[in-house]
Design a protein around this nucleic acid. Sequence first.
DNA 1: GATGAATGAGCCTTCATTCAT
DNA 2: GATGAATGAAGGCTCATTCAT
Lengths: 211, 211, 211, 211
Amino acid sequence: MSAEVTEPRWRRLPEERPQQILHAALEVFGEHGLAGARLEDIARQAGVSKGTIYLYFPNKEALFREMVRSTIVEAIVAGEGIPDTGSAREQLLAFMQHYWAFVRTPAFSVIYRVVVSELHHFPDLVEFYSTEVIARTQKLLSGIIRRGIDAGEFRALDPAVAGRMLISLFSTSAMWCCKRKYFPHLRNRPDEQIYNELVDFYLSALRAVPQ
Amino acid sequence: MSAEVTEPRWRRLPEERPQQILHAALEVFGEHGLAGARLEDIARQAGVSKGTIYLYFPNKEALFREMVRSTIVEAIVAGEGIPDTGSAREQLLAFMQHYWAFVRTPAFSVIYRVVVSELHHFPDLVEFYSTEVIARTQKLLSGIIRRGIDAGEFRALDPAVAGRMLISLFSTSAMWCCKRKYFPHLRNRPDEQIYNELVDFYLSALRAVPQ
Amino acid sequence: MSAEVTEPRWRRLPEERPQQILHAALEVFGEHGLAGARLEDIARQAGVSKGTIYLYFPNKEALFREMVRSTIVEAIVAGEGIPDTGSAREQLLAFMQHYWAFVRTPAFSVIYRVVVSELHHFPDLVEFYSTEVIARTQKLLSGIIRRGIDAGEFRALDPAVAGRMLISLFSTSAMWCCKRKYFPHLRNRPDEQIYNELVDFYLSALRAVPQ
Amino acid sequence: MSAEVTEPRWRRLPEERPQQILHAALEVFGEHGLAGARLEDIARQAGVSKGTIYLYFPNKEALFREMVRSTIVEAIVAGEGIPDTGSAREQLLAFMQHYWAFVRTPAFSVIYRVVVSELHHFPDLVEFYSTEVIARTQKLLSGIIRRGIDAGEFRALDPAVAGRMLISLFSTSAMWCCKRKYFPHLRNRPDEQIYNELVDFYLSALRAVPQ
DNA sequence: GATGAATGAGCCTTCATTCAT
DNA sequence: GATGAATGAAGGCTCATTCAT
């Protein structure tokens, strides 16, 4: 039964089917939302037929849920592994760089949009997003900030609040950057400048108060 | 039995028809998005029949556009009139209070969601929103902040950047507050506390650096 | 009670309403057929409101029937009075001239089209048309031709048949003339030439056979 | 019980689908016209579901156009192949016999009705009909008649005019025959007699004039 | 009588879902 | 497993008809 090895690249491997479909779903749902997307477009995008989708997902909604879930999970996996060495400030900077890259990822912007717009109808997905993305980020951040406070690098503030602020600032700015043409208030500044402004602003807010 | 006869069909004034429909549209489009909303539901919500909608709007998309536009305009009108007296800090606080009330308005949250999710398909609406809501707020804010900088109340930073940050922080936080149950990272804090945290955080970032 | 005389031309006389509507109906039904016509267009064309039509006709179909009937009747009335003096040939020529004018009338072409296309659904109208238009014409023509045969001016043939042939030739040719641009086989000949060709052809077919 | 299983769903060959639909469309459009026909009826008549029609035709109007076109083309193909031997008179008789059969075909009567009634809205179809049906017939006929004139069998007349006359006489008479019950002026004569009268009349009109 | 806003049944069209191949 | 033709329920839109003014 070495068949899949001896005669290997005969079409894509069937095990990859669900992945292909999920990626296609990310694009199409991201573009049109749940109600506006057509299974046919997802199928075409995935290079399979309409019927094939039903071999792997029981219906449109399930595909949507699974797409959101798996995309979030992928993002999490990709987001692990920021080194926890150096001063809190250094770690925070490393985190920001990493997070800035993440929020400007196409997948993030899609998930963000989709979560925002289907809020009511998929509370469990929103909760999943909350728990897996926001809470994780919160936790990581809180740790760094708490350390910074303890070390006197940052002023005393609730680390959870500081975490929320960072998430808020970064995700909104990323969305603006991704759709820069519709948001003229960015005045065509390149992403790095936006990033630098974010860092400057955020660090200012954490700055320890001299007595 | 006589109930439906006693106060029967004093039809509402026809001039109010478009308003009724637009308000219903705000709710239903807000709940289901453009593609997911059913004209029938909007009609029922407005207390008119399906056909009546077509007496005032040529089709679903036009109704959607008009709903977004008119809601934005209403919000703008409602948003005028913050007094420009007192120190920059006082004015800024007044503005924040006002803006915090605005972003937690149901209409704002609907428009925000809708603008975010239909981004691609209605660039003109996004631009309208950008120009009329974001840019206006920006301008107002920039003025206040610039004055604060000139007066030495705030540190020297690009007023436009500071404006962006406020908008970002407030709109995200408002969305979280409105859907608090889905966002456990707010830890059930009441709106005022969230607001106080915002104010504290934001003012810290503007704080003049002592030399 | 003399009101309609003392204060006369205050708007068009109400008694003319049905006429206005019927004329408008002729145009609109003629253009779009029964199913394709919109009452609203008929109303606009007649210069009245949609509701007014229902003051005079119980519904769309009744209006259609009445329009066909009254148009046919008008045509008949207009078609009386060909002098019956002179040789059969002279009478026939007079009749042809008159009939040629009639079949190129807008009303005729509309009725012809409408009768042809709604054949199945209004057998009574078709029969009315048959009886009132075709049969009358037949009778008139038969008389002329019979006299011609008796007088030796025409060859011996069934006068009814000859009548049918004339009706057939004239009505088809008229339709071609009215829509000349769609029927290039007429080769842009003016109506009179078409007429002369008809007369020549028809008289040839009646020509007495010399022994 | 087993009946619906024994000879179950050997679906007709998919390649025939468009044909089935077009034939059904011929009947239903022929009966009700474009605006009056319901896609649902066409679907039922074709033995398919409503949705299936849209697999082959983009919309109602396109189906209508295609039905007219394909019916005309079928008629043309069916109409080829009249032998060109014998005297002009013999050929003319052969042609008439063939043409008489053609114009009494159900498809012809439907197309004729439809072309007449949708004249304004589908000028291209009328032109197609003109070119492909009328002009072809004209050409064929003109040739025969010209030969007859040259051979002294017929009197000298414009062959194109003679062609037109024949088309006119035959198509009208055919329509009358098909709907004989509505046209009492045919006096219930059988088709063959009508045909004989046509032939007699037409040949008389072509008869060479003795000097 | 006259109006035209309002209604809602009806039809075209789309698309998620099924199923014979 | 994979396909895509077929289905039919659902929803946007139209328009004949009604009725309060």
